[in-house]
Amino acid sequence: MTAYDYGFDTLAIHAGQDPDPRTGAVVPPIYQTSTYAQDAVGAPRLGYEYSRSGNPTRDALQECLAAIEGGRRGLAFASGLAAEDTLLRAVCRPGDHVVIPGDAYGGTYRLFAKVAENWGLSWTAVPLDDLDQVRAAFRPGVTKMIWAETPTNPLLNIADIAALGGLAHEYDALLVVDNTFASPYLQQPLALGADVVVHSTTKYLGGHSDVVGGALVAASDELGDTLAFHQNAMGAVNGPFDAWLTLRGVKTLGVRMERHCDNAERIVSYLREHRAVSDVLYPGLDSHPGHEVAAKQMQRFGGMVSFRANGGMEKAVEICNRTKLFVLAESLGGIESLIEHPGQMTHLSAAGSALEVPADLVRLSVGIETVDDLLADLEQALG
């Protein structure tokens, strides 16, 4: 089964998930094993030797991820940051340079600023929706990749994937797109010119807030082989049960994303009219500076909504503390709605830097509950 044979939802349910040949089990088994019997020295059965190097449950997930992203090879990891770290060490060397978003996710910023920088990787943060600034940040022969998020976390800025891909390839660099916020259901970066897609599968792909994981999907066999070598050599793989949980979540991604988007659109309309809100950040709004690009490269505009509170940080924190259905918690993309204050939670690592987020910002991960209940909860919390 390939990405060219079937529609998205069919691939999500079937790619890499043929019935078990021995028992006929419709759902792929959890191969909860560390090692495998070999038929003879140097002759492992079906190529499986040790579960860090290969596991049938993880392989099922990896094949499915490649199919739904339209890539040549998918690789699953223990977390999104484990996937990011493996990618950086596979592609970059000390002395290399990367262009990152001016409002990158706090964990990604921390990886670059506090970890990768220590082994000699330099980086420049620029607004990726300004191609002139991106070009100006390039160091020919030194810059190895543009690292993009679109929409960004938590400011929901939009980058033109096709334009960034053209620019990166002009300089023989890679375009990496973190597709976590959009999910492959809403956006297909590889088809638009990206070389690698990154996911925190903890979020929309898993979808139930019960498993942590990450993924890389490569557009080419050559890059996929390089990443697979480093996946094995560095060892930050997910376990078989985590792979199975993620694969279960992927099956319903399409129907969940439709409900996430429906609910988010209702909430955006409500927030825009509320006196306690000074600004709503959502790429589905005509007033959003990235709306035209988002409409071109996304199927819909997603379930993430951010807004700025009248009354500054004190009011933003008060709103976060007052909700009842919106759970005050980090992470996103689950079936339940979450609320957080990025400045003191997910993006605290960027405090005091050029990537610091506004203190009055509130981020919502809009779940799939009955939307009228969510609106009532926001009404009492906003006061």
Results as ranks from 00 to 15, higher is better:
Val317Gln: 14
Gly302Arg: 03
Ala354Trp: 03
Leu81Met: 15
Asp130Val: 11
Thr23Asn: 06
Arg300Val: 04
Glu273Arg: 14
Leu81Gly: 06
Leu87Asn: 02
Leu247Gln: 09
Asn118Leu: 15
His291Thr: 07
Lys296Val: 05
Ala173Arg: 00
Leu364Met: 08
Ala218Val: 08
Leu175Met: 04
Leu192His: 06
Ile161Lys: 02
Pro240Thr: 07
Asp373Cys: 08
Leu216Asn: 01
Val115Cys: 07
Gln297Tyr: 10
Gln17Ile: 05
Asp5Ile: 06
Pro101Val: 05
Val211His: 02
Ser278Ile: 06
Arg259Glu: 14
Glu369Arg: 07
Ala236Lys: 12
Gly254Asp: 14
Leu361Gln: 03
Met234Leu: 15
Ala233Thr: 13
Asp195Ser: 08
Glu49Ile: 13
Ala104Leu: 01
Ile161Ala: 02
Gly165Leu: 03
Val317Thr: 13
Gly239Met: 07
Leu216Asp: 00
Ala137Val: 07
Pro21Gly: 04
Pro358Leu: 09
Ile68Asn: 00
Thr180Leu: 01
Pro19Met: 11
Thr370Ser: 05
Pro140Ala: 10
Asp130Glu: 13
Ser220His: 08
Val362Lys: 02
Glu63Ile: 13
Thr246Val: 11
Leu167Thr: 08
Gly70Thr: 10
Arg45Ala: 13
His260Leu: 10
Met313Asn: 04
Ala15Met: 06
His288Arg: 05
Trp119Met: 06
Ser183Leu: 04
Asp85Thr: 12
His14Gly: 00
Arg135Leu: 08
Thr2Tyr: 11
Gly311Tyr: 04
Pro44Ala: 09
Gln188Lys: 14
Leu61Asn: 05
Leu190Phe: 11
Arg322Ser: 13
Trp123Cys: 00
His274Leu: 07
Asp39Pro: 01
Ala376Ser: 14
Ala136Asn: 12
Leu174Asn: 01
Glu314Lys: 12
Ala228Cys: 06
Gly102His: 06
Thr33Gly: 05
Leu364Trp: 04
His208Tyr: 15
Arg259Gln: 15
Pro29Glu: 07
Tyr185Gly: 00
Glu265His: 08
Glu318Met: 09
Ala43Val: 15
Leu167His: 07
Ala182Glu: 01
Ala233Gln: 13
Ile158Tyr: 02
Gly214Thr: 09
Gly102Tyr: 01
Val98Glu: 00
Ala359Asp: 14
Gly213Tyr: 02
Gly24Glu: 09
Ala83Ser: 11
Leu75His: 06
Ala137Glu: 03
Ala78His: 11
Glu314Leu: 11
Asp279His: 14
Gly334His: 01
Arg93Val: 09
Ala381Phe: 09
Ser287Asn: 09
Val134Phe: 04
Leu281Ser: 03
Pro154Val: 04
Ala76Tyr: 07
Leu186Pro: 01
Trp147Thr: 03
His230Lys: 09
Val126Glu: 00
His230Leu: 14
Glu84Trp: 02
Ile368Lys: 00
Leu156Gln: 14
Ile368Tyr: 00
Glu149Thr: 10
Phe138Lys: 02
Ala215Cys: 09
Leu167Trp: 08
Pro94Asn: 07
Arg272Met: 14
Gly106Gln: 00
Ile335Glu: 13
Ala82Glu: 04
Tyr48Thr: 05
Ile100Gly: 00
Asp130Gln: 11
Gly193Ala: 11
Ser337Arg: 02
Met257Phe: 05
Ile30Cys: 12
Ala351His: 13
Gly207Asn: 01
Leu61Met: 09
